[in-house]
Design a protein around this nucleic acid. Structure first.
Lengths: 259, 259
DNA sequence: ATCACCTTTGAAACATGTTTTAATGCCAAC
DNA sequence: GTTGGCATTAAAACATGTTTCAAAGGTGAT
């Protein structure tokens, strides 16, 4: 559908007349991009996915509707620019956490859910727009800096003797990303609560890690998995109770989960 | 967005005048639904996702464009009707396969990929339309008959002593679904080949199963995981070679993965 | 200062999912 | 068989992502 966007990320300065300052051409473009991303963020926060249209974004940013298309290429690309800013924050915070090579995986899940919890509607909407609409999103999810991050964590655990060194970090990291991504998508789509997202992500991680565990880590990983399993069971019991009450108290509602 | 569709699946015959034949009202509705699903399938096969519009579907099925909306509620719901027909076929074929309680997981992956391989464009398009557009799809993926199927397989393995009985089938099955679903979505979105989908799905299953393995299964699961890891490595090497050749032979292409 | 080039702009157009409306047709109960 | 109600239809309308195009504005090299 979308025409390939201009490759604005690739700095190309073949010209030899670059010595005293950056080209203001690219500079002001970058400026405008930031303006649009900032506008996109606040618009998302204010209106959520429903009220977020490219026309509204253009108006909010004070530019023509053609401009975001010139600068980003598509709505999805704008969403990714918003997400990537978040990723930096996430990684900084993750860096600061004190955790050993195994716990860091679970802390990573908790950190993500706590960030989501701070602005749930915003994150839901942005993730929905980014990943639920066209395939390019997946490349950014599994390919870019996210993959590098997870692979590093896996590698650390391996070198610390917590993971069997027969398992190589690349494939294993992708597997972890798959698990967490599906959980996030279920939350985004309203099929699980943030509590459940956290528990299910940690459960999936614990099980997968245990699949490549060494004797140094295998027991605590089973404990973690079973603890999360227990929490999930409790959450489901609670959820069923809520559903039952909702069913008896009010008129039966449509099955459709969309807002 | 979409208005809640009519709950056409719920057979409601409170009237007591039902004795000799079904109400032709519902009958012909069902008939029409089948017509539309059949038309949707062939249209998908012929044109792929690109040429598949609700207007085209209506024309192909010989009905007004309003009719699919009356009978299904949304384009996505039509796609799910197509997918559900496939699921039945899949389960029948899976049932026929001879495999022990562990191998059946890997056979299940292979069976899916081989079905996809028979009509790749069709499956890609239908999965894309079903899951990549609005949240209701996820409910069908993780909730319905698919979950029941995976849970049954997990339960079988557990009762056969292949999986630690501390792990309960429900959570574990969902975890497997998450892994496979992400892999499928990556294939659907053109980020991995069918070969890689098969290998990565089996890798993810092997690792997860090993996370809950008993001594009876733990060694073969590691072997399986490492075999898949090796295959993935080989696939990536091949892929990098292909990419390098494509890069040197042709003009540099846009990064954008979309059609 | 001037000119070539790039970018933004505004408006319109396009494609497509979805909804609405009035009219017509058909089924089932009386 | 008549009639009331539900379903289908055609057509138009709506919302929104995306593209196009000509005009206008700004920038950098000369």
């Amino acid at each position: 559908m979308a025409k390939p966007p201009r490759m604005w990320h690739k700095a190309r300065w073949d010209r030899r007349t670059v010595n005293h300052r950056m080209a203001t051409r690219e500079e002001s473009k970058e400026q405008r991009r930031r303006t649009i991303v900032r506008a996109a963020r606040t618009l998302m926060q204010e209106t959520g996915q429903a009220g977020f249209s490219m026309r509204a974004l253009a108006e909010k940013a004070g530019v023509s509707i053609a401009t975001p298309y010139n600068l980003f290429g598509s709505k999805q690309a704008v969403m990714f620019a918003v997400l990537d800013a978040d990723l930096e924050q996430y990684q900084i915070q993750l860096e600061r956490l004190k955790a050993d090579e195994i716990d860091v995986f679970f802390k990573a899940v908790s950190l993500a859910t706590s960030m989501y919890s701070a602005e749930p509607n915003f994150h839901r909407a942005v993730l929905l727009a980014a990943y639920n609409d066209g395939g390019t999103g997946y490349r950014a999810m599994f390919g870019g800096p996210r993959h590098v991050m997870w692979r590093r964590l896996v590698n650390n655990a391996r070198e610390a003797g917590m993971l069997d060194s027969d398992f190589e970090p690349n494939s294993f990291a992708i597997n972890l990303q798959h698990i967490f991504f599906s959980c996030i998508m279920e939350w985004v789509n309203g099929l699980m609560s943030l509590e459940e997202l956290e528990a299910r992500g940690q459960y999936g991680f614990a099980v997968a890690l245990r699949g490549a565990a060494t004797p140094a880590s295998i027991d605590r990983l089973k404990d973690k998995a079973l603890a999360m399993q227990k929490r999930l069971k409790a959450l489901h019991k609670k959820q069923r109770r809520v559903e039952r009450e909702a069913l008896t108290m009010t008129a039966p509602r449509a099955v459709n989960g969309s807002k």
